[in-house]
Amino acid sequence: MSTPRFLTLPPGVRQQTIETPVGAFAALEAMPLHGVPERLPALLVPGFTGSKEDFIAVLQTLAHAGRRIVAIDMRGQFETKGPDDPAAYTCEALGDDIDHVAAAVGGGEPVHLVGHSFGGLVTRETVIGGATKLASYTLMSSGPAAITGQREKLCRALLGALPEVGLENIWATRMEPDAIAAGVPDDILSFLRTRMFANSLIGLTTMARQILDAVDRVDDLRAVDLPTLVLYGEHDDGWPPGSQSEMADRLDADCFVVPGAAHSPAVEAPETTAHTLTRFWNQSERHLLHNP
């Protein structure tokens, strides 16, 4: 595993592999530049077609607060290998993977868990399962059930087109032109192409179905006694901001709307996102101290 030549990692951030009983997971690990981690670690899980690199902009700031921060590729994503078995890519199966990764990252300590978008649907299975001790849980730009709106249409289009025209055609005729129109720089565009074609095709199709068929598990999540944060951009085009706000109310969770951000606050407003997570994690650790 090596850093793509067109991506530069911030100081204190390095490529890492997290070894677990269910396999190895490609990761980015951020550590404080000075001293040792004095607070509980955090694990960041990306969304559909995403990867650990989606968190690059927040890793250094989060680690500066005194934590080890780990962002991973889920099974079948980018640099983490996955099998040719659709059953490996359900939310339940991926949630079990995250349980093992969290245990490895924590090393016996509780872990702050963050799930972005589809990663939220996956990590809520980890939380509800309750096998690993967690310090807090953050749903970032994720919703209570199946995705809706424009991203639902894009997901259905991808799912329908993949068997007929293939990923190369979809990239060349839809994804790349959309990225260019949005002003994505050439180096990032090269990375996005490399990442897209590194994904497991079986993983992509199964994850897409999972996003479209996800059921509401908010009541199950609420039953878990865990400090929870719902964080999303004010212009989120995934799950509507209103539905995420309603989910936060149902969970009795903290809620933070990131000004100016859309579906990827860690990319679009990294400093605000990092400071919000740090503040929430600090509060959660005080809660844990008084409620061991």
Rank of each mutant, 00 (worst) to 15 (best):
L204A: 11
P185V: 10
L189D: 09
P185G: 02
R222I: 02
A172L: 00
D219T: 09
L204P: 07
F256G: 08
V267H: 15
R193A: 06
E268A: 01
M175Y: 15
A266Y: 08
A223K: 13
A182R: 01
D213Q: 13
P265E: 09
I188K: 07
S264G: 13
V184P: 02
G166L: 14
M207D: 09
A182C: 00
A208P: 00
R217G: 09
V230W: 01
L162R: 03
W171V: 02
A172T: 00
R174I: 08
F191E: 05
T205I: 03
A172N: 00
D186W: 06
D252Q: 11
G233N: 10
E268Y: 02
R217A: 12
C155V: 14
V258L: 07
T205S: 09
T194E: 10
W171H: 04
T206W: 12
D252F: 01
G149P: 04
E164K: 10
V267P: 03
G233T: 09
R174L: 09
P265C: 13
M175V: 11
P163S: 11
V165Y: 02
V230R: 00
P241Y: 02
V215M: 13
V224I: 05
L162A: 08
G242I: 06
A208Y: 01
V218C: 15
A146V: 08
W171I: 07
G242Q: 12
A182Q: 00
L189K: 04
P163E: 03
D219I: 10
S142K: 00
S245W: 00
Q210L: 11
G238A: 08
T173W: 11
A262M: 10
W171A: 01
E152A: 04
Q150G: 05
L231D: 06
